[in-house]
Design a protein around this nucleic acid. Structure first.
Lengths: 236, 236
DNA sequence: CGTGTGATTGACGCCTGTCAACGTCTGTGG
DNA sequence: CCACAGACGTTGACAGGCGTCAATCACACG
């Protein structure tokens, strides 16, 4: 089967081998179809893939890079829902709910992203119940995370939430050999995850630093005492 | 096909006719299977269907009544995730994520609830991709609601959230002919939805009453000025 | 009538958001 | 190479929203 899109388009097979992807339930033929129909694009840091409120006609599979998903709330204040990285799929919720996009997808680090047309996705979902079940499981996992976060944000203090987010970022993006968080965020973005003011983030990071829990080098955050962070995030 | 469970077990057909249920994508044979395998039970007000952290072996379809789903947070404080009523399915998330129940299900109003064994559900999901897709859509809708609520709780004040919850309860359970909310909650439960103290709920309800937006008769809440509530919940 | 649950009210104070001023760094254009 | 703008980080002052504690009331139930 000839590739619709030429150049350095990555093959879905590579993605599946190197990461846990829902597409690993597809048959060879289906994978070929997917490879043929998908459209791979490169997005530079700072560009927007799609906007909240827009109607999207397919979903996006991240080949590499980091994408920030956020909703715009009162007075243009953004609230970050989650980050997507290699192997993640975004936009499927709106597609499947037949709804407008409920968040904006913005590129944090240069990314290669494959667009999968809605018809293709629906075709795969309708014909391969194993794949369909896998997508369902994915949605359920996300739902569980969302519910857990609601409880956190409703019951925990800002300090507890900040500690928790640092740990979540660690689990999601990992640390380098020097214990530095492998994702770089501004103070404002950290605030937009946990729903607090930039100034509060700064003061609390300062406090964490005082306590020797973290080390700060500009936007690079080094996690020194993970146990302590866990203790705080779990309400001691 | 003989019924496994006798007595006044409701038939799934009734449920499907009278409400929007994901099961309307099932074939006649599949419906028969479901009718045969499901186990219907009556739960009295105050009883618990399953506990957070327990392993559940199936999901539950609500035939009537109201169920409260909540997580237990710090110091036993409960946080209400959502309510389930006629036609809703609960417990499917844990089942599909192969996870422990992430919330407790407690009966608010006497309920008839049908237990659907996990194997039956998986069998239906694997064989009927239309049904599977329907479940996926359901999960996506819930996910969208959860995400929206996260932003709300992170950015809105307690007053705004309280107004919003009153409106959500109106949309979910409706009003009677006298504009009374068709669900009865304690002040504490209202606080547990929006993540605030009971006392704050009481004071704010008092304020709403002053403004003639609502009328209070014990736990009965009458919505007088929905426009005003909308205005507040949307941050004016 | 005692007990228990829920509702109410007041006092108090801390957490946290807001505002303002200033420092730092980077990139751009002259 | 310097000046400047703009984005981001930092710090301090301040106030008010909201949680906590405690006392009291209302009501239902055994």
């Amino acid at each position: 089967m000839k590739r619709k899109n030429q150049t350095s388009t990555p093959s879905c097979d590579d993605c599946i081998i190197n990461s846990i992807s829902v597409f690993n339930k597809l048959t060879i033929d289906e994978l070929n179809l997917l490879n043929y129909e998908k459209i791979c694009q490169v997005f530079k840091k700072g560009t927007t893939i799609y906007n909240e409120g827009s109607r999207i006609s397919g979903c996006y599979c991240i080949h590499n890079g980091i994408i920030k998903l956020y909703k715009t709330g009162f007075e243009g204040r953004e609230h970050i829902i989650r980050f997507a990285k290699k192997g993640d799929i975004i936009g499927y919720r709106s597609l499947l709910s037949n709804d407008f996009a409920c968040h904006t997808a913005k590129v944090l680090e240069d990314s290669q992203v494959c667009f999968i047309p809605g018809e293709t996705l629906f075709q795969l979902l309708e014909n391969n119940s194993k794949f369909s079940l896998e997508m369902l499981k994915l949605a359920c996992v996300e739902l569980g995370e969302a519910n857990a976060f609601i409880t956190d944000i409703a019951q925990k203090t800002v300090k507890e939430r900040l500690a928790e987010v640092l740990l979540i970022l660690k689990d999601t993006f990992g640390l380098d050999e020097e214990q530095n968080l492998q994702i770089v965020l501004t103070r404002e973005e950290l605030g937009n995850i946990i729903g607090t003011a930039t100034e509060s983030v700064i003061r609390l990071l300062g406090e964490f630093k005082e306590n020797k829990w973290i080390e700060i080098n500009g936007r690079k955050l080094k996690l020194l005492d993970i146990k302590a962070l866990q203790k705080v995030s779990a309400k001691k």
